[in-house]
Amino acid sequence: LTDEELVTMSVRELNQHLRGLSKEEIIQLKQRRRTLKNRGY
């Protein structure tokens, strides 16, 4: 997933992508998404 996709994707879509990932990967992705959102994309 690109940063842009992460930010513009709805939470529902995101959760579908996260299905099948490990807990660590999910946590990393969610942190990255929060960081991007805070940057004001």
Rank of each mutant, 00 (worst) to 15 (best):
L1A: 02
L1Y: 04
L1F: 08
L1N: 00
L1C: 07
T2Q: 03
T2A: 04
T2Y: 02
T2H: 03
T2G: 04
T2C: 04
D3K: 01
D3G: 01
D3L: 03
D3S: 02
D3R: 00
D3Q: 02
D3N: 04
D3E: 03
D3F: 03
D3C: 12
E4H: 15
E4L: 14
E4F: 14
E4K: 11
E4C: 14
E4A: 10
E4P: 03
E5M: 14
E5C: 12
E5D: 10
E5S: 05
E5V: 07
L6I: 05
L6H: 00
L6A: 00
L6E: 01
V7M: 14
V7L: 13
V7N: 04
V7E: 06
V7H: 04
T8L: 09
T8K: 14
T8V: 08
T8A: 13
T8H: 12
T8W: 06
T8I: 07
M9S: 02
M9T: 02
M9A: 02
M9N: 01
M9L: 07
S10L: 03
S10H: 04
S10N: 06
S10T: 14
S10Q: 03
S10P: 05
S10E: 03
V11M: 12
V11H: 12
V11L: 12
V11T: 10
V11Y: 13
V11C: 15
V11E: 13
V11P: 08
V11F: 09
V11D: 13
R12D: 09
R12E: 12
R12K: 13
R12Y: 10
E13V: 06
E13M: 06
E13T: 05
E13F: 02
E13I: 05
E13D: 08
E13C: 15
L14Q: 00
L14K: 00
L14W: 11
L14I: 05
L14S: 00
L14M: 05
N15V: 12
N15P: 00
N15T: 09
N15Q: 12
N15C: 14
N15D: 07
N15M: 14
Q16I: 13
Q16L: 14
Q16Y: 11
Q16R: 14
Q16P: 03
Q16S: 09
H17K: 10
H17I: 13
H17G: 02
H17A: 13
H17N: 05
H17L: 14
H17W: 12
H17M: 10
H17E: 03
H17C: 07
H17V: 10
L18K: 02
L18P: 00
L18R: 00
L18T: 06
L18N: 02
L18G: 02
L18Q: 02
L18H: 01
R19A: 11
R19T: 07
R19W: 06
R19P: 03
R19V: 11
R19H: 08
R19N: 08
R19E: 09
G20N: 08
G20Q: 05
G20A: 05
G20Y: 08
G20R: 08
G20V: 04
G20D: 06
G20T: 08
L21K: 12
L21A: 07
L21D: 00
S22A: 07
S22Q: 05
S22W: 01
S22N: 08
S22I: 03
S22G: 07
K23R: 11
K23F: 09
K23D: 07
K23L: 10
K23T: 10
K23Q: 09
E24Y: 09
E24C: 13
E25L: 13
E25S: 07
E25D: 08
E25C: 09
I26L: 04
I26T: 06
I26A: 15
I26W: 05
I27L: 11
I27P: 01
I27D: 10
I27N: 10
I27W: 11
I27E: 11
Q28I: 13
Q28G: 10
Q28E: 13
Q28Y: 14
Q28A: 14
Q28S: 11
Q28R: 14
Q28T: 11
Q28K: 13
L29W: 04
L29T: 06
L29P: 00
L29Q: 03
L29C: 15
K30A: 05
K30G: 03
K30I: 15
K30V: 14
K30E: 06
K30L: 15
Q31C: 04
Q31Y: 07
Q31R: 11
Q31D: 10
Q31W: 07
Q31V: 09
R32D: 01
R32M: 03
R32C: 03
R32G: 00
R32P: 00
R32W: 03
R32S: 01
R32I: 03
R32N: 01
R33G: 01
R33A: 05
R33K: 05
R33P: 00
R33V: 09
R33F: 15
R34G: 05
R34T: 08
R34M: 06
R34K: 13
R34N: 09
R34E: 13
R34D: 10
R34H: 10
T35L: 15
T35A: 14
T35S: 10
T35N: 13
T35K: 14
T35Y: 15
L36D: 01
L36I: 04
L36Q: 03
L36C: 03
L36M: 04
L36N: 02
K37E: 06
K37H: 06
K37A: 05
K37R: 11
N38I: 07
N38S: 08
N38Q: 10
N38R: 09
N38Y: 08
N38C: 15
N38T: 07
R39H: 12
R39C: 14
R39L: 15
R39K: 15
R39W: 09
R39G: 13
G40M: 11
G40I: 14
G40F: 13
G40L: 15
G40D: 12
G40S: 07
Y41W: 11
Y41V: 13
Y41T: 12
Y41R: 06
Y41M: 11
Y41D: 13
